[in-house]
Nucleic acid binder design. Structure first.
Length: 144
DNA sequence: GCCAACGTTGGC
DNA sequence: GCCAACGTTGGC
């Protein structure tokens, strides 16, 4: 099982929004990613992989955990190429649980063990990888 | 609102 | 294929 971190601006789509959809049994398609590195990360995701939900811009904190419930498939909102194929991919996710104590970016930056976290090193990447050690530490910091 | 980082585009 | 210009993201 691999671990990931996915960003969303909460005024566009928040973890609470995801929880509401999950409660209604509606998978959320993580559409709108238009960056190849982020797309490749989504293509590397497997069913059951877990991901942190990070609120960018507003909050700047990890607020919850979600699970990949469908592997990468064409993003229906993506442009098509000359052959009519969708260029971009997305995965489906469902909320698992919120973090009892959200972990802020400031806290992450102040934690030496997390200096290599992709969220910090590649700050503009919207879908990034989290190592098992980083995952365990962040869960602990989040009160789990 | 500014700016740094970085991806993309387009001229050569 | 290089590189300058430009656009976007996201933290501050």
């Amino acid at each position: 099982m691999a671990y990931w971190l996915m960003k969303s601006e909460p005024d566009v789509f928040s973890f609470a929004d995801l929880q509401a959809k999950t409660a209604r049994n509606e998978p959320e398609e993580w559409t709108g990613v238009r960056n190849y590195a982020a797309r490749n990360n989504m293509r590397a995701m497997a069913l059951g992989d877990e991901a942190f939900f990070y609120h960018s811009n507003i909050g700047k904190e990890i607020v919850g955990i979600m699970q990949v419930v469908a592997a990468a498939h064409p993003d229906s909102t993506g442009e098509r190429n000359a052959k009519g194929e969708v260029v971009w991919d997305c995965v489906d996710v469902a909320a698992i649980k919120p973090l009892p104590r959200p972990v802020t970016l400031a806290t992450i930056k102040a934690t030496p063990e997390l200096a290599e976290l992709e969220l910090v090193k590649l700050s503009r990447l919207s879908v990034s990888k989290v190592s098992p050690d980083e995952w365990a530490l962040l869960c602990k910091m989040g009160g789990l």
